[in-house]
């Protein structure tokens, strides 16, 4: 009988030692990256029609959440209550991808032409879109650990020949191949 009471009281006392809820602890872990020992470098690399592009950022967690070179942040789609995560990489070119989910997780995310024209990359000063029927861009998040995502991507895009309003004039459909795409330890900002 005494043992039962001791066991019951021990449960109460031990649990009260933890000073935050599970949700608060998870958010704190995400926001602190690896809690003071985040990755030294985040990278993204890919090939545009066989030409390699590599971007490396030292101390990726030290970037500004609102003005980063390589990172991912949660955003509100303009004019709606829909949220998405925008992965952006700025270097000799630019690569962007939107994960349409309210809770980012490991998995495959694709954008296909049926969804409508969408900008994804700039290379050699030319903007590349998903536009032609066979165009698509797929990002696969293979790990999401302590506020950092890693994975791979590939796709087929169409270059813009002349940017104009309300519609662009496009070049050869599907002529931009994105291959060998990888990203590693990219911080997710909230």
């Amino acid at each position: 009988m005494k043992q039962l009471l001791v066991a019951s009281l021990s449960i109460v006392l031990l649990s009260s030692c933890l000073k935050q809820s599970i949700a608060d602890a998870m958010l704190a872990n995400e926001r602190s990256g690896t809690q003071g020992s985040g990755p030294d470098v985040a990278t993204m690399s890919y090939a545009v029609n066989g030409t390699s592009v590599t971007v490396s950022v030292q101390d990726p967690d030290g970037q500004s959440p609102t003005a980063y070179q390589l990172g991912c942040t949660k955003m509100l789609y303009p004019g709606t209550t829909t949220t998405f995560y925008s992965l952006d990489c700025l270097g000799s070119g630019e690569m962007s991808f939107a994960f349409y989910t309210d809770s980012l997780a490991v998995g495959n995310y694709s954008y296909i032409a049926n969804y409508g024209d969408m900008y994804f990359a700039t290379y050699n000063g030319t903007a590349e879109y998903v536009h032609a029927p066979a165009d698509s861009l797929s990002f696969n998040i293979t790990s999401y650990t302590k506020g950092h995502i890693s994975g791979n991507f590939s796709g087929k895009l169409t270059p813009v020949a002349t940017a104009g309003y309300p519609t662009n004039t496009y070049g050869a459909p599907g002529s931009v191949l994105i291959t060998k795409g990888t990203f590693k330890d990219v911080p997710v900002f909230y």
């Binding site: 449960i11 649990s15 809820s21 998870m26 958010l27 809770s103 909230y190």
Partner: peptide, 25 residues
């Protein structure tokens, strides 16, 4: 299975977890 849906900077974020359970009754 456990999930907490919380408001983070104006957005709802779903946090899933498991964990050890202890109870006294």
């Amino acid at each position: 299975y456990g999930v907490s849906s919380v408001n983070v900077d104006g957005y709802t974020q779903n946090l899933t977890f498991h964990g050890l359970v202890a109870a006294a009754g």
